[in-house]
Write a protein that binds this DNA or RNA. Structure first.
Ligand SMILES: [Mn+2]
Ligand SMILES: [Mn+2]
Ligand SMILES: [Zn+2]
Ligand SMILES: [Zn+2]
Lengths: 148, 148
DNA sequence: GCCCTTCCTGATAATGGTTCTCACATGGCG
DNA sequence: CGCCATGTGAGAACCATTATCAGGAAGGGC
C-alpha cells in the first residue's frame, strides 16, 4: 500500500466509491497530466482519448477523486478551479509553476515552532494550506532566454 | 507610515485610488468586522450603517482594497469569496476560525530551510500562501461545553 | 450467473456569485 | 473654478458549477 494512486490505476483512486468505464478514463487522463488542469481541460483530454464522458460526469468524478485524496485543488485561475494529480498519500504540500502549471510536492514547513505560538494562546489548529508559487526550472530558463 | 490602514481611515486604505463617500463607508464597515466576511455581508453592513451603496460598488471597492493591501482574501465558503481586514503591512499570514470566522495574523513560517530545498533544484519561488484553520479560544470553549 | 439495490451517467436546465454596460455624478488637481 | 479621469448604480450578461431525472450499470450476496 502507499502507491496505488501514483499511476492512475483505479484500484483505490476513488476510495470506496463505485468505478465505471468513464471514471477509469477520467482518472487515467488526470494522472497523465504533469501539471495543474481545469475540469474543462480534463473533459477535453478524456474525450480526445476516445472515451467520451459527459461534463457533469467529469465534475462528479473530480469531486470523488478529491474526496479520495487522489486529486488536490490548487487554487483557481481565471475563475476556474485548478486540480492536480497527487501521487503521495503522506502529508505534504505543493509548488505550482505560474507559467506552465507544473506541480511538485514539497515537505510541510510547519513545525511546532510555528503552530505552538497560536496554540499557546488558546487556539486549536485543525488544518492548514501551504502553496508555493514560482517558476519551474524549464520555465525559468525559457524566461531568461526571452529577456535578452 | 505603517499603521494608516489599521483603523479603516481612508487615508491610504485605497492606495492611490480615488475616495468617495461610499468607499469611506465601505472601508469603515470592513475595518469594523473582527472576522472574515463575504461581499454580500459587507454590502448589508454598509446599508445598515445608513450609507447605502450599490452591490457593484462594494465589489469594486473590495477589489481596490485588496489591490492596496488593506484587505486579504481568505479562501471561499459556500461558493462565496471571504475577505478580512488586514491591519498590518509587514509580511504575515492568517489563522481563520472555521466556526465564527475570526481572523488572527501569524508570522510567516517559511524559512530558508523550506525554500532552499526547491530552490536548490532550479525552482524560483516568487510567492506563497499559508493559512491556518481551526477554532479560536472562544469557539473552542463553546464547542467543549456543547459536547458533554 | 442472477438479483436487487445503490450508485453513476448524461443532456439539459437552473443556480448564483461576480463582472460588464452605460449614462450620470463626483473626486481631486492645476 | 473648470476638466477629465475615475467612481456610481440598476440591471443585464456571464459562466463555472450544480441540480434534475430518467435510464444504465456496478457490485455484494446468494
Ligand atoms: Mn502531491
Ligand atoms: Mn493580516
Ligand atoms: Zn513551468
Ligand atoms: Zn471562533
Amino acid at each position: 500500500m502507499g502507491r496505488a494512486r501514483t499511476t492512475g490505476e483505479t484500484k483505490g483512486a476513488f476510495g470506496g466509491a463505485r468505478v465505471s468505464r468513464q471514471r477509469r478514463a477520467i482518472a487515467s487522463a488526470a494522472a497523465r497530466f504533469g501539471s495543474a488542469f481545469t475540469v474543462e481541460r480534463l473533459h477535453a483530454a478524456v474525450t480526445d482519448a476516445g472515451e467520451p464522458a459527459g461534463l457533469a460526469t467529469v465534475y462528479r468524478a473530480v469531486t470523488a477523486l478529491v474526496d479520495a485524496g487522489s486529486l488536490v485543488g490548487i487554487g483557481t485561475r481565471d475563475g476556474s478551479a485548478l486540480y492536480a494529480w497527487c501521487g503521495r498519500d503522506d502529508h505534504h504540500h505543493h509548488f505550482v509553476c505560474t507559467r506552465c502549471g507544473a506541480v511538485r510536492g514539497i515537505e510541510c514547513p510547519l513545525g511546532e515552532s510555528a503552530l505552538g505560538a497560536v496554540r499557546g494562546e488558546g487556539y486549536t489548529v485543525t488544518g492548514h494550506d501551504v502553496t508555493l508559487y514560482g517558476l519551474c526550472p524549464d520555465c525559468r530558463h525559457a524566461r531568461d532566454g526571452a529577456t535578452p
